[in-house]
Nucleic acid binder design. Structure first.
Lengths: 153, 153
DNA sequence: TATTATTGAGACTCTTTTATCTTAAAATAC
DNA sequence: GTATTTTAAGATAAAAGAGTCTCAATAATA
């Protein structure tokens, strides 16, 4: 699996927040219901994003979480790094420690190229870009639900 | 992690076999020693490759395993599919079931492109190609050991 | 001030992956 | 045929990832 489940949930939640970003705090419970993710599990994931400064949170009634920056300024890579860390973009494909230009494994060059392609995709894609596309074409953010059902309350 | 540890071990072992392929059976114990992989764990992994027809095995004294085809005719993708299955090349980046051209997630198009790059790399790279490169430049197959130390007995 | 709605933090459980250990089966050599 | 070397298979254990539960902390509001 390319991304951990935590990371995937973090991405879906971030898209949700970017999609309805009017500056207000959204309760995690609302998101966990809409996105069909366990509330407590999602809470832990969003805590990581908050710790990394991608989200900010507010406790108490009318509390919740929101993006600290505009969706145009948040790249997928920000969320992936916050949750899964840099391993995907740094690790050797054959699992050898310290694999790099100086001390490569036989697969290093080819894997470095492929890895760069992944990196570039994650780095060039913003939340807003995906939200725009998702809204236009009513794409899915959950097994059944298109973007539209995420805004009906 | 892109590939499971089992898959990585399977790749390293396959490179080892391709590197010293003179048609003879190599004991798994020899490989597990040289590659610094737990013997029993490696045995189970190689059993999968045997079940998939990538290796053949022989029991008893002078037994072991060997490649069924020439290293020139075994691509990395063969080993990845045998051990990790097709998930890496088919799964949705946002974990949505049935994500595809017909019912995509917002990330589908971009991820499909990146995934194709991974697929192509795995599909175009043969064991022999990596072995050749590894032998020429004495690259690593293990934390410390270059290709050369794998042939000294 | 008491109640309620919310996030934060930690303990705990379940599942999957990784790794080990034991025994069986097959082939060889003596 | 018996002992030895090897893979095959399955049980068990340890570690990591995924998910749940409980309680504390904070803020709003009645």
């Amino acid at each position: 699996m390319l991304l951990s489940k935590s990371c995937v949930y973090g991405l879906r939640a971030s898209l949700y927040l970017a999609a309805r970003n009017q500056g207000e705090f959204i309760p995690i419970r609302t998101m966990s219901d809409k996105l069909e993710i366990s509330f407590h599990f999602l809470t832990k994931i969003l805590q990581q994003l908050t710790a990394e400064g991608i989200l900010e949170s507010f406790k108490g009634p009318n509390g919740g979480v929101r993006l600290t920056r505009e969706g145009t300024e948040i790249q997928l890579i920000d969320i992936v790094l916050a949750i899964d860390g840099p391993q995907l973009l740094t690790e050797c494909a054959l699992g050898l420690p310290g694999c790099g230009v100086k001390n490569p494994c036989p697969l290093h060059d080819k894997w470095a190229e492929t890895r760069d392609a992944i990196h570039e995709m994650l780095e060039k894609t913003t939340l807003t870009e995906l939200v725009h596309k998702g809204k236009l074409e009513n794409l899915r953010l959950t097994t059944e639900g298109g973007f539209d059902i995420l805004f009906d309350n």
